[in-house]
Amino acid sequence: MNLIIKEAFEKEMKTAKEFYFAKKWNEAFLHLEKAHVLGQRDAIPHTINHWWMLKVGIGKKDGKEILGQVARLLAAGIGSLLGRAPIGNTGGANIGIMTPLPISDDVAQIFIKANLPIR
């Protein structure tokens, strides 16, 4: 994983975990979504991210999110390894598993700094 992306991913995951442990599920999930966009090109971070999304779904008692994250946990690493992760997809069960999305300006700037494509 590119060092710039890794640092940004870890920062978002750290913030998400802080919100998770404070039981601030929605805030945690927002940071997990940003981390997902950053980490989805690499199998291990991608899978870890979906594990935490599942944990938030369980915390919220959100059945749709729980089922969606279980499916994504099974597919995340494989998709990353095959280069099939849809760029910009935020990883939640409210978005199709293969649906690409626009990348937010702040995340796009991180990709540009890391000299990685944003599409």
Rank of each mutant, 00 (worst) to 15 (best):
R41I: 02
A22S: 11
E27S: 12
L82H: 03
R41P: 01
L38I: 00
N26H: 08
A35R: 03
E7I: 01
K24Q: 14
L116Y: 08
I110W: 05
I48G: 01
E18V: 06
A22D: 14
V70D: 06
W52S: 02
A43Q: 07
R41W: 02
A108D: 08
D62S: 14
P86I: 02
E65A: 13
E12S: 06
T47G: 01
R84I: 05
N49T: 07
S104W: 07
M98E: 08
E7M: 04
G68C: 10
F29N: 12
L3D: 10
N26E: 10
P102I: 03
V70N: 09
M1A: 11
N115Q: 13
L54D: 03
T15M: 07
W51N: 08
Q69W: 11
D106K: 05
I97D: 02
L30Y: 09
G59P: 09
G96L: 13
Q69M: 13
K34L: 01
V107D: 02
A22G: 08
S104K: 15
P117F: 07
F29H: 15
I110E: 04
G83H: 12
K61D: 14
I95V: 15
M1I: 02
G39E: 02
I118M: 12
E33A: 08
L82Q: 12
A8Q: 04
E12I: 00
G91A: 09
I97A: 13
A93G: 12
W51H: 12
G96S: 13
E65R: 14
L73K: 08
K34Q: 09
R84F: 11
L54F: 14
Q69T: 05
A85N: 06
G79Q: 14
W52D: 02
I48A: 03
L74G: 15
K60E: 14
I5R: 05
L74K: 14
D105W: 06
P117I: 00
F29D: 10
W25H: 09
T99D: 10
I118S: 14
P86E: 06
A75Q: 12
A108K: 15
V56E: 00
T15R: 09
P45D: 01
I103D: 05
M13I: 14
G92C: 11
L67P: 00
A76G: 07
K64S: 13
K17H: 04
V107Q: 03
G83S: 11
L3F: 04
H46N: 06
M1P: 03
G92P: 08
I58W: 15
A22H: 11
A71P: 02
G57L: 10
I5A: 08
L116A: 10
R119Y: 14
R41H: 09
W25A: 09
S80E: 05
L82Y: 03
K17Y: 01
F9P: 02
A93V: 00
P102T: 06
I5Q: 05
T15A: 09
A35F: 02
D42T: 03
R84T: 05
N89Y: 12
L32P: 04
R41T: 01
V107N: 01
A35Q: 05
L30Q: 13
E18N: 12
P100Y: 11
M13A: 05
K61W: 15
A43D: 10
K60A: 12
H31C: 05
P100V: 06
K60R: 15
F9E: 00
P100D: 10
A85Q: 06
K64R: 15
A35G: 14
H46V: 00
G91I: 05
G92Y: 11
H46P: 00
K17N: 04
N115K: 15
A43K: 09
G63M: 15
I87T: 09
